[in-house]
Each structure stands twice: as C-alpha cells, then as structure tokens.
Design a protein around this nucleic acid. Structure first.
Length: 852
RNA sequence: GCGGGUGUGGCGGAAUGGUAGACGCGACAGACUCAAACUCUGUUUCCGCAAGGAGUGUCGGUUCGAGUCCGACCACCCGUACCA
C-alpha cells in the first residue's frame, strides 16, 4: 500500500459509489426508511466551511443509517430565487437566470469532491419552472381553500428603485441601495392565512420532542399568545359611525386605573379624523414618517395628540377619559386601540407623565401603603399584590388570578368578552420583484381577481427582460402581462407580484420525495418518505423558515398534497454551530483597521506577526467573513489535504451544536492522523497470516468498546466524541501485538467506524484488508455485549469523599467481600490512622467510600 | 427591559450524583539526524524537592460523595423588543 494520497483515492471512490448507485433512494417496503435533510443552500457560487460542516453532519447520519439497513433518502437542491441574482444583473449586467444556473453548476462542482452520500438524481432548483409551476398549482388550491387573500398593507417603499424593501434593507430611514428616503406606502398585497393556525402551531410545538427546546421557545414567543379582555368604550363627541371604540387589554384588572384611551395612527378612526382635521393630519403624517424597523421604533419618543373626543368608563358613565392618537399603538395587534393604565405600565406611565394625565394606582405591594408613584409599579403577574382599586376577586391576589377574575366579572356585567390574541400576523408573500415565483392570478375587468387555469401552468418568467432601469421588469414587459381571463375569456392582465422566497423553501422537503412528478407530490412517495426524520440547519432559521414550513405542510395536507402524518414535517431538528476563525488585525496610520489573511501570518510563542515583523492583533473565534479576511476556502483544504481531512476536522473539535474554530494546526493534525491510520493499515496488511501474538482478548474487547462508543455517539449527535473514541481505538490498535486475524478484524472495524466521517480512506482500507464489496454498503458492526463487560474492575476508594487508594476486584464480588478487602488495604489503613469507621458505602462496580 | 443559554488546564473540549481534565491542539523532554524538518517514545491542571495540598465563574445549601442537584450573585453569548 503506497503513501496516503487523497487526491488519488477520493475521486476513485466517488466514481465507484456512483457506478454502484450507492445513494439512489429507493422505496423499499421491506426496509425501514430514513429521510435525512440538510437545509438546502442559496447558490452564491462558492461553498464555505459552514456548508462543509452542515452537509458532513447530514452525511454522517445518512451513511450510518445506510449501514444500519435503512432505505435512506438524502437529497440536495438549491434555494435559487431571490434578490442577489437581480442585484448581480443590475451591477454587472447579464440575466438572473444565467447567473443562478452558472452558480449552481459551480457549487455542485465544489460539493461533489466532498464525497457526500447524496442522491443527485433528485436535485432541483426552486427557479426551475417544473418546481415553481407546482408551487403555483398549490397556490391556486390554497386560494380555493380560503388560505390566501389580498389586503392593503403598509410597506417600506423605495421611490428611486421603485420597490418594496424589507425592514433590514432600510438603513437610517433610507434604502440600502439607492439611499433614497423610504416612504411608508400602502399597497395591496397577497397574504397566506397563517393566523388561522396560530393556536395549532403553538400547541403542536409540545409534540416536537426532538426539536431543540430553544427553537420551540423562540417559535412560541413569536406566535405570542395572550389572554385578555376585549370591550367597547362608548364614545362622546365622536364622528358618526364611531360611537363605540373597541379596545383590547391583557390587564383588565387595572381597568379602575385607566386614565386615557389611545388609538393607532392607522386606526380607522384616526384615518377618519385625519380627513377633517389638518392638525391631526399633520400629526398622523409625522407618525408615519420614518422606518418601520425595530430600531426606529425603539428610539422614537412617545408622541400623542388629544383628539378632543372622550370615552365613558364602562363602570361609571360619568367618568370620562380623553382619547389620544399615539405613535406607539400598533394597528395590527389587538384592536389598534387601548386604554392606558399609567400606574402599572411603563409606556403608559411615560405617556401620562408627558401629557399631565392622572396616575391612579390599582394595587400596591403586599404590606405597602398607597402613595403617589414616581415610577410605574409593574410586578410579575405571578406575584401577590393588594388591590386598592380592584373590582374582582380577593383584595390580595396574584395578577394572574385578578385577570381571570376580572374577565369573568366583566363578562357577567356584559362588558366585553375574554379573548385570546396572537402576535403572529398573516404572512405577506407579495414581492415586487422579477426573480421569484409568479403569483398565478389574473386581473379581469369583469370577473375581478381570478386564479389562472391550472392547464396554463407554469406561468413562466419571461426571459427577455433587462435590469438597467428601476422597478419590476414584469410590470413594464410589453406583452407578458397580457392574457385572457380564464373565466370569461376577455382580455385581462396578469398579476406581476412574485412570491417571497420563503414560500419556495416551505415545501422543498416534500418535493424531494417525488421531484419529477407532474403534481406537487405523489401520494405513495410522500407517504413512504415523509416525514423528514432528521433535519439539520442553522439556528438563523429557527423562526421564519421553520414556522412557514410547519404552516405550509398543514396547507398542503388541507389541499390534498400531503398525508395527515406530515403536518409536522420535521420529526427531529438539529441546529449546528458556525465555523469560526481567528481574525488578524493591524491598524493603518489613520487608525483604521486593516485585516490580514491567515496565510500571511507567522505565529510564534509571543503572538502573531506579519512577514516583516509587524505585530498583529489576534481576535479569537469570529464568524468567517470576507471583509475580515478570515475565510478558509474548503477548496483549498481539499486540494492540500483532501475531503476526508476537512470532513473529519469540522466534526472533531467541538460539539456540533456549538461553533467550531478552524485552525491550521488542527487541520494538519487531522491529515497526519489519517496518514498514521493509513500506515497502520499497511503494517497490518503486511503481517504474516499465521502470525500469533499476545493480547488477542484485550484487542477484541477494545474493538467492541469502540463499536459501542462510536455508535452511541453518532446516534446521540456527539460526533466529537465519536471521533475521540476513534482516536483512542487507533492508538490501541497501533500499540497492540495481537495475532494477525484479530489485528485485521480490528482495522476493518476501524475503517467501517470511520466511514461516515472519512468515507474515502475507509474504502481504501476496507478493500486492502479484504473487506467484501464497498465499505459504504457493508453493514454496521455490532458489539458483542459479552466483550463490553470486564471480568475485573478497578474500584477507587475514597476516605471521607477524597480518593485515597484503589483496588482491583472481580466484577461481581459481593459488597461485603469488597468492604473487607478495602479496609485491609494498606493505604486505607494509613489514611484512617486508627480512626473508627462510621460507615462504608460500596457502589458495585463504581466506588467505595469509607466514612471515618 | 424580557426570554434562553454558557462558564472546567495555555487552547478546543470529556465526565448515567461515584477516580475531574478522556480525545485533540499547543508546549516540554528524549530517540532518529552532521543539523533541522518529518516520524517515533514519553511528560504536561496548579502550588510543592517531596510528603502532601488546592482545584470545574463567586458565595451558600442538599448528600457518604457535587463540574453535575437546589438557592443567591457575577461574567459572557444568543434571541427578542412599544404586542397593551
């Protein structure tokens, strides 16, 4: 066996797997199925170490499951629609389609050398008409099922680029690309009724046992369930049609502390007043200026304007409260109107103080006396307080109890009703963009908004578009918009909005089960392969992508595209950490930071310097980014050390859910280790077949222990521990002097156990050691349970909790016998120094503790 | 502010309530070499010549026994934010 040369063996084995069809997913009723999926990539054109880590994790799972006899589905595709392709077209010319498909080709070419166990025959991109056409078909089904609607919504509008911007594209109130002042504009947009499922998406989280607790919590917070009271104030001096003002509160127990009512600037009442009162119009316009982003809202001062209207307190019609329009009231939560209780709400307190409104306390801390408040008193709802202006339940009770009592009391008095509200809003999917899935809808002068006929799908994006002028190319295309109404046959116009790219990624997992079908899914395939048994991806998708996918699976079930069991499409979720790297920084003469590439740095005991000796500041463990120059290109690593080294290293150093720091020394060490395994294989291969040695049983035991540890670690997603166990076993094997058959069995087992992480070298070793067929297709080894238990055990002896000695005894020796031996031990006698033994604890097979 | 998480050698990290520091990196010593690199062998938590002592962010508690369980605090990280 020659030198370890990954450049030779890796392509060879990849070809062999290909020819054997080793990773083609087949429906096999005789086998249990296993569907492992990593979040598919955006085709940026280059893979990075994060991809390597993500896909290696999935690959380890897939390869292990293949070996364990499962029929495995492990597909790959491309999340190919979206802004970067259009940006590239605007900046460099060309067409988004060409840019995207050429990036896909580049990235596929970079991924294949990793030797992943992917069924490439199922590959697709979301920008393939065959894919988005099926998405359009489902959109039409969802329209019919009442899950899609249109409404006017406020958006960030860039008047120069003539496009809608996401919140994160608005920087300091200006468009990120154009720099133009962003306007809040109302556009009619398409929405999915995800809010129909708020309660279910929340309660079903409890069933997702194999999801990280953190993700479930983030989703629960995002859905944001609250229980409160909705009731109507009677208004005084209000315009016609506004004789009632509906408000929502989660603290109805503070109703006696109300000092004002406030409505959102977008409330229908505010819009009405705006039309008749220039001062109010000016104020409302002021509120609408500025971005809708979180930062903009956070720093904004609380502003209000008295409308002059009054509302009557529901308990006392003589008690009137002023009605303000206030900039901090959100229209799309609750009713867009509130009552303010400044004593017990920080926002209301700030507002009341500013506008000189009364601040009557409703409750005080248990044992405290009522006193004027210098700051709002907002205890935890679970805390007991004494009500001084309560109206329901006991005087001393928790906020929670008081809220329940107050809702019951109000309902009994006929004032409002208990209501469960959700923070989750409907999913706005309209994008005024070219490079997305066209919304398959037609605007007809007679019939209104109608769905396109399914026979006309896919509605393909036109190729003859340019990006040299702002706005949506679909809007200004000379003919694309022209069509006929599917209902009346009259001339009509196409919808020019395209779908949010989150729609594309909300069902790709289902499409992988029958990627070439003429319908979105095929029942037998979906039934066999769904659900995804293990989903792997970044924590950044904890909320939106995963929530949308959960909703979409339900919508697909409702419209007959997925079985009921698939409404929660991901049985288990794993969120992996990032790959990080040190940053090397110096500063120029003006004090600006200058970053340096890792290959330009010389490390020594005293730190890091450049070639010319300039001292470099080392910033540890930062996310890889081009601007910080701390990116390690997987292609360079593969060229230098091979894919197996890259794969092994990203799995070895940290638990997979945590960030892993890429280090050059670690990568080199991995390569050295694999080379050592290679030469160990050579050495064992050259042993004479009849060589007898010593320690056969010990090596058999070590082999069994390695199987056990590696298997359990992989199944528990503790890949770093699996690798630690493999290091340990390699060292044992290298030092062993057992007879040839046991050594050979050892190295073959090592190859099989390494194969999920380092499949190429594993194949070479397997073949060289006479393994049957491909290592990849060989069954996973099983540890003989008898070999996992030792006949004798070493027991540490503690005296008063401190370890003082150890003894070796037969595994199943009686406790009384062990006690005797322990007390006779000379170290024990020495440390006891004659003290009487009060108690002795023997934990069989574990430890002995002598209490003196 | 609110919610969640994490704190273990020089570093990444192991430890069903039972020998703290597995495994890897780095460092040190030795072998090989004219020499260096590679490779191999060994050492490596800290203090101490040793015997021994201390030790898992801090302080307290439960326990025969705590990195692990409980309480308080400190630090850092992540998410989220006018949601009435």
């Amino acid at each position: 066996m020659s030198r370890y040369d990954p450049a030779t063996i890796e392509p060879k084995w990849q070809k062999a797997w290909d020819e054997a069809g080793a990773f083609a997913a087949r429906r096999d009723p005789a086998k249990p199925k296993y569907y492992v999926l990593e979040m598919f990539p955006y085709p940026s054109g280059r893979i990075h170490m994060g991809h390597v880590r993500n896909y290696t994790m999935g690959d380890v799972v897939a390869r292990t499951k293949i070996a364990q006899g499962y029929s495995v589905l492990h597909p790959m595709g491309w999340d190919a629609f979206g802004m970067p392709a259009e940006n590239a077209a605007m900046e460099r010319g060309g067409h988004p389609k060409e840019w995207t498909y050429s990036n896909i080709a580049d990235m596929r070419a970079q991924m294949k050398p990793l030797g992943l166990s992917i069924d490439w025959s199922r590959e697709f991109a979301t920008c393939d008409p065959e894919y988005y056409g099926q998405q359009q078909a489902m959109f039409i089904d969802m329209m019919e099922a009442g899950l899609v609607y249109r409404k006017a919504a406020v958006v960030n509008w860039d008047p120069v680029d003539m496009t809608v911007l996401a919140n994160e594209q608005v920087i300091d109130g200006r468009g990120w690309r154009s720099g133009a002042l962003v306007e809040r504009r109302e556009l009619t947009q398409w929405f999915f009724k995800i809010s129909d499922y708020s309660a279910e998406l929340l309660s079903a989280l409890d069933g997702l046992k194999d999801w990280p607790e953190k993700v479930r919590l983030m989703q629960a917070n995002w859905i944001g369930q609250s229980r409160g009271l909705q009731f109507a104030f009677a208004t005084r001096g209000a315009p016609e049609g506004f004789d009632r003002l509906e408000v929502y509160t989660t603290r109805p127990d503070t109703l006696m502390g109300a000092s004002f009512a406030a409505i959102s600037p977008d409330h229908p009442l505010a819009k009405h007043l705006e039309r008749h009162d220039p001062a109010i119009a000016a104020f409302v316009a002021e509120c609408r200026r500025g971005g809708t982003s979180a930062e903009a809202l956070e720093t904004a001062e609380k502003l209000g304007m008295d409308t002059g209207m009054r509302v009557a307190h529901p308990f006392d019609t003589d008690w009137e409260l002023p009605v303000y329009i206030a900039n901090f009231i959100l229209m799309d939560y609750g009713t867009g109107a509130i009552f303010g209780c400044p004593a017990h709400d920080a926002r209301d307190f700030e507002f009341a103080t500013k506008y000189g409104l009364p601040i009557p306390p409703v409750f005080v801390a248990e044992g405290a006396e009522a006193a004027p408040l210098a700051e709002p008193f907002v205890p935890m709802k679970s805390e007991k307080v004494r009500y001084i202006r309560g109206f329901a339940g006991a005087a001393v009770q928790t906020g929670e109890e008081a809220v329940v009592a107050a809702i019951a009391e109000c309902e009994a008095r006929g004032i409002g009703r208990g209501v469960t509200n959700y923070r989750l809003r409907d999913w706005g999917i309209s994008r005024q963009r070219y490079w997305g899935c066209p919304i398959p809808v037609i605007h007809c002068a007679t019939c209104g908004v109608v769905a396109e006929a399914k026979a006309n799908l896919p509605i393909k994006l036109p190729d003859d578009v340019t990006f040299d002028i702002p706005g949506n190319p679909l809007d200004r295309h000379p003919t694309w918009r022209d069509c006929t109404c599917p209902q009346c046959g009259a001339k009509a116009r196409r919808e020019t909005d395209t779908m949010d790219t989150f729609v594309d990624s909300s069902w790709y997992y289902a499409r992988f089960t029958s990627p070439r079908a003429e319908t979105p899914t095929v029942a037998e395939d979906a039934d066999y392969w769904m659900n995804v048994d293990q989903y792997i991806g970044g924590i950044e998708h904890a909320i939106l992508h995963l929530l949308y996918s959960r909703f979409f699976a339900r919508a697909m079930h409702k419209t007959g595209h997925l079985p009921a069991k698939a409404i929660e499409p991901f049985n288990a979720l794993f969120t992996q950490g990032m790959v990080t790297h040190e940053i090397y920084k110096t500063t120029d003469e003006k004090g600006r930071p200058v970053y340096h590439l890792p290959e330009d740095i010389i490390r020594s005991e005293n730190g890091a310097t450049l070639q010319d000796g300039t001292v470099v500041e080392v910033i540890p463990s930062a996310k890889m980014s081009k601007s910080k120059k701390n990116v390690v290109d997987p292609m360079n690593i593969i060229a230098a050390f091979g894919a197996d080294t890259a794969r092994w290293f990203v799995m070895s150093d940290s638990p997979p859910e945590r960030d892993v720091e890429w280090t050059a020394s670690g990568a080199e060490a991995t390569f050295k280790h694999l080379s050592r395994v290679w030469s160990l294989c050579s050495r064992i291969g050259e042993m004479p077949a009849d060589h007898t040695g010593t320690g056969d049983d010990d090596l058999r035991r070590a082999t069994a222990r390695a199987i056990d540890e590696v298997t359990r670690s992989i199944e528990g997603f503790a890949f770093n521990k699996a690798i630690a166990a493999l290091y340990g076993f390699t060292n044992t094997l290298a030092k062993a002097t057992a007879s040839t058959p046991v050594m050979k069995a050892g190295i073959r087992t090592l190859a099989k156990l390494m194969s999920p992480m380092t499949p190429h070298i594993a194949e070479s070793i397997w073949t060289y050691q006479g393994g049957e067929g491909l290592c990849t297709q060989a069954p996973w080894p099983k540890a003989d349970p008898a070999l996992l238990v030792d006949d004798t055990v070493t027991l540490p002896i503690q005296i008063n909790g401190k370890r003082r000695a150890e003894i070796s005894v037969p595994k199943d020796m009686a406790a009384a016998e062990v006690e005797k031996i322990a007390l006779a031990n000379e170290d024990v006698i020495k440390f006891l120094a004659g003290q009487p033994v009060k108690k002795i604890i023997v934990v069989p097979g574990r430890i002995i503790n002598v209490v003196a």
